[in-house]
């Protein structure tokens, strides 16, 4: 089977600055993968390239063998780093919006998760806290039955309890054949849900291993290794 995501010599430059520098790797299906790196290491650039929001300066990125485009958008569920939702929308508007936009959207599942979170269909986004907004966005993204989920900093702005809820939502909602790529720098919270981790530093991959291989080889957590590798 074709890897769900494959990069070959993927390079992205912004003017004279190189954000991604000849990155090559592939992701299998059915994995939860952490894309880890300090700020400015190229995490968001990589995710935007996978979504076709940016085009490579050199090399290529393929989703299930295809270059990013209409066909791959149907396979990929993307949680951007920043909110793109309009404040006037109600929770119900948002569900309808996703339902009409994506064929693979599971409306019942999304509605159920929102009820569970205590969000009323008539609540507008404007009245919600930052943490609730992040949760609601994750709910709609995870309610798609996609092949690849690209989550850019899903736990950045929320408190630890909300973090647990979000991680649990990811764990219980991805299907066995789909892959989840999560970019973050909050590693200790997330490492036990990951299969593999990719360390990205200054646009290059410095490590790509399973969490348990790292723990047995180095005798320490991914978080501890990360702190060591990226010590300033």
């Amino acid at each position: 089977m074709e890897p769900i995501l494959q990069c070959s010599s993927l390079t992205k430059r912004y003017g004279s600055k190189t954000a991604l520098d000849g990155v090559s790797f592939s992701l299998e299906r059915g994995r939860i993968v952490g894309l880890l790196g300090p700020n400015g290491s190229g995490k968001s650039t990589l995710i935007k390239l996978a979504n076709g929001l940016l085009t490579p300066s050199a090399g290529e990125i393929r989703i299930s063998g295809l270059l990013p485009g209409t066909e791959t958008h149907a396979m990929v569920s993307y949680l951007p780093e920043r909110t793109y939702l309009s404040d006037w929308m109600t929770a119900n508007d948002l569900l309808k919006f996703f339902d009409s936009f994506y064929e693979d959207f599971n409306l019942d599942k999304a509605a159920q998760m929102l009820t569970h979170l205590g969000i009323q269909p008539k609540d507008t986004l404007k009245t919600m806290s930052k943490g609730t907004k992040e949760k609601i966005q994750l709910v709609v993204v995870m309610s798609r039955e996609a092949e690849l989920y690209l989550l850019d900093e899903p736990i950045g702005g929320v408190d630890p309890a909300a973090r647990d809820y979000i991680l649990n939502t990811i764990l219980t909602n991805y299907s066995e054949n789909s892959t989840v790529l999560i970019s973050t720098h909050l590693i200790s919270d997330i490492e036990r849900v990951l299969d593999d981790v990719i360390f990205l530093n200054q646009g290059q991959i410095t490590l790509h291993k399973t969490v348990d291989d790292i723990r047995s080889e180095y005798g320490k957590s991914v978080d501890a290794l990360f702190r060591e590798v990226f010590a300033c």
């Binding site: 994995r31 647990d164 649990n168 764990l171 219980t172 036990r192 849900v193 990951l194 299969d195 969490v211």
Partner: peptide, 17 residues
């Protein structure tokens, strides 16, 4: 496997292993 993994808060593949 899925239920156990969710209970432990770990990845299902790790529980499977």
């Amino acid at each position: 496997v899925r239920d156990l993994a969710a209970e432990a808060g770990v990845n299902p593949n790790t529980m499977q292993r």
